[in-house]
Computed example of a mutant assay.
Amino acid sequence: MPSYTTADLAERVKGELKGRADLGIEGVGALKDASERQITFITDQTHAGLWARSRAAAAVITDGLDASGHDPNARALIVVPSASLAIIELLQLFAPPPLLPDAGVHPTAWVHPDASIGQDVRIGPHVSVDRGASIGDRVVLYAGVCIYAEAHVGDDSILHSNTVIRERCHLGQRVITHQNVSIGADGFGFEPAPDGSGLLHVPQIGNVELCDDVEIGAASCIDRAKFGTTVIGAGTKIDNLVQIAHNCRIGSSCVIAALSGLAGSVTVGDGVSIGGAVAVSPHVTIGSGVSVGACSGVMRDISPGQTCLGTPATEAREALRQAAALKRLPGWMREVSRRLDSD
């Protein structure tokens, strides 16, 4: 287990050390649970007020917060511009080494003779790589990954167990998919049969492209386009259990939280934040820099830079005014009834 002094860690995160420099730190823990050999982090005043009761030896704290009760003779604070960013550095420092599949191709994996396999790959048990597929250098495929024909996985990508990459889909470099991700399943396209006999399946002949540095959470699904390409832009991060329908185009550096669903042909700009359990109607455009609050329903276009809440999603201040008015409605109704009864 690695061990560092508080002076080492302060230098590592370029922070100002307030307190002891010689404390040995062996890991990272939550403020309430950390031990005497761990460091924690404090990002707001509420948690700063709990510092005196924590057992942690040290804390990384955002500048400007008041950690009342701090004893510099016993513990240490490392003051940084952003504790949320500094803790990333420390988590990387204390992270255990990744447990990767063995180098090479596992004996139970199947690789088609016409597939292309890069250098220094790690292909785990029961992986399938079909004809014409290409796997870049240093790619890691955990057990049960299935790569369909003519799909491409870019250099340094990591696909966790039971990920499925369907035919002709393209993954850029350093893409990460967590377990049970589906890339390129048919879009949900059906039309009523003219004779009323049922539903006709609309062929989905496009594909999916995940650009560089995209990360997809467990059990999320990104459907292939009806025609053309469903695109997830560079650096975008998608949480668990998210549905992205056919022909969506998601910009770069977006975050989409769990249980959200985007219907077909939605366009999302760059740097958009979509909270958990958000539903987006078909053909809607969400402008760059937009934030959509959790459990909202987006039914019409949102201009760049807005923060929206509710169903239908409305500019945040207006949505809060509506919520406040709704909360007062029962009282207003009682007052109206009282006045009517008095007339």
Rank of each mutant, 00 (worst) to 15 (best):
A185W: 04
L91K: 06
G189P: 01
F190S: 05
Y142F: 00
I78E: 01
V242Y: 01
D137G: 06
R317T: 02
G264Y: 02
C295D: 04
G196Q: 12
W332D: 08
G217S: 03
G276P: 10
Y4L: 15
V284L: 08
S303C: 05
P2Q: 15
S128D: 07
Q119R: 15
N73R: 15
P101V: 13
S182H: 01
N207I: 06
A58K: 09
L23Y: 04
L93H: 13
L309T: 02
Q119K: 12
G289P: 03
G118W: 07
D239W: 13
G206Q: 05
F190M: 04
P96R: 15
R168D: 03
V181K: 00
T267V: 07
P2M: 14
P72S: 11
S134W: 05
L320G: 01
G310Y: 01
A294Y: 09
D301K: 12
A115S: 14
M333G: 05
T236D: 04
I250C: 02
G206H: 04
L326Q: 13
A324W: 07
A57I: 06
V127S: 00
C254Q: 14
G293N: 00
R37I: 06
A7H: 10
T236W: 03
A324H: 07
V139N: 03
S273T: 09
D130N: 14
R37N: 10
V280S: 07
D63A: 13
D44R: 10
L326M: 14
A151W: 02
